[in-house]
Design a protein around this nucleic acid. Structure first.
Lengths: 220, 220
DNA sequence: GGAGTTTTCGTACACTGTACTATAATCTCG
DNA sequence: CGAGATTATAGTACAGTGTACGAAAACTCC
């Protein structure tokens, strides 16, 4: 059986881009915990150690993956600073929901260039708003916390996209058993009525309105 | 050499509590990534598989660990609802800073009984505030996002407690290189002036004030 | 052609979680 | 007291992980 030996040397057949892109696909499908160097190499039709010519570590590969997610956020914005901040927030939120595995990494991993550019852009927008410095700072953290916190919650407690059988059972148990009535009430509040509404955008606007108001207060 | 064979059977020498407590100590010292079943067993002077008589999984052990952290939060509160919410938030924040490894797990792992009780308590406090339902919901998420987000940031970007050499170098590089001027400015803002202030409490009060105000608005 | 460089990869090692099985100490019941 | 059941403790083994080391193949350049 003439199984050809794997090629060695010469013109590169792998690319960092190709590696990252494939890894991204695998992480999207199976979660990042299931992503191993070996599986990734096999998927690429390469040997494991070949990857290490392009990537120092598994950790730095993950950093690259997260930055790849950050790269999906469109930085161009239109309108005044509230509109711009809103666009950035929504785009980031959507990128995170597209790659749920990235949400816990997002705040753990050291940022790559795209992530830094995104942060820079949001800070730039807030700077353009001419808010008092401490309000701008508060606003920045409120926005980023909202983005991350909201995405985390949707993934942790049952977005339709990421539901598992086990999770649904746990939620059901929480609702039927009588312990923690307030928690149950809270869960029902979300499950029942308000999932239709765009909760993320709603709270986002509350934050932005608050910032705008505190600017107006200041200028009077 | 009369090394005594390890005892088998009979009266239990291990306890779930003992296991969890030891694991907690190890996680606090070396981080949760360094915590392995084998190391934990060795620390306990036991065989690896003995642990599995008390714990189904490593994952459920981690769940227990996180709930152990949640158990450190004092649920008794004093004063009106803003004071009570403040106490819960501060106590949770402090517990998380005491066990930084737990921060990413906090929002990933399914809550245990202590964590549920804590959530229940915060919801109860907010319910007692007689806020409009949507404001109460918003407030709950604003508070929890603030708690988690703030803790995460302190750990990710250099609290004095968790600094590593590498991280300090990265931050220094960020500040000296000219890329991302707004980010650098933002970092300096935090490093320079405001670390003395109790930023966590400051923003916390802003949130609570906002909630109180929106209640007052509603009652007029 | 030969030397040097670049890219690929096989092997090996230390480490992980844990399934399966064996074993010893204790408890229960006669 | 003795025999059997129960329970807590472990040893071994296996599949899987990240990656250090070194070898080998294909390319470039003289």
């Amino acid at each position: 059986m003439g199984r050809p030996k794997k090629k060695r040397g010469g013109k590169p057949v792998l690319t960092l881009d190709h590696i990252v892109e494939t890894a991204l696909g695998m992480a999207d499908e199976q979660g990042i915990e299931q992503l191993s160097m070996r599986k990734l190499a096999t998927e690429l039709g390469a040997g494991v150690m070949s990857l290490y010519h392009y990537v120092a570590d598994k950790d730095t590969l993950v950093e690259a993956l997260v930055d790849r997610v950050a790269s999906e956020v469109e930085l161009e914005t239109t309108g005044d600073w509230t509109a711009a901040a809103r666009q950035l927030a929504v785009a980031t939120h959507e990128a995170l929901l597209r790659h749920p595995w990235a949400i816990p990494e997002w705040s753990t991993v050291w940022p790559g260039p795209y992530r830094f550019a995104l942060t820079e852009q949001l800070l730039e927008v807030l700077a353009g708003a001419q808010l008092p410095p401490d309000v701008a700072d508060l606003g920045f953290h409120a926005l980023t916390n909202h983005i991350q916190g909201f995405a985390r919650q949707r993934v942790a407690y049952g977005d339709t996209r990421t539901d598992t059988e086990e999770m649904r059972n746990r939620v059901k148990g929480l609702l039927t058993q009588g312990d923690y009535p307030r928690v149950a009430e809270h869960v029902r509040y979300h499950v029942d009525g308000h999932s239709n509404h765009d909760e993320f955008g709603y709270v986002l606007d509350l934050i932005l309105d608050g910032l705008a108001r505190s600017k107006a207060d200041c200028q009077q």
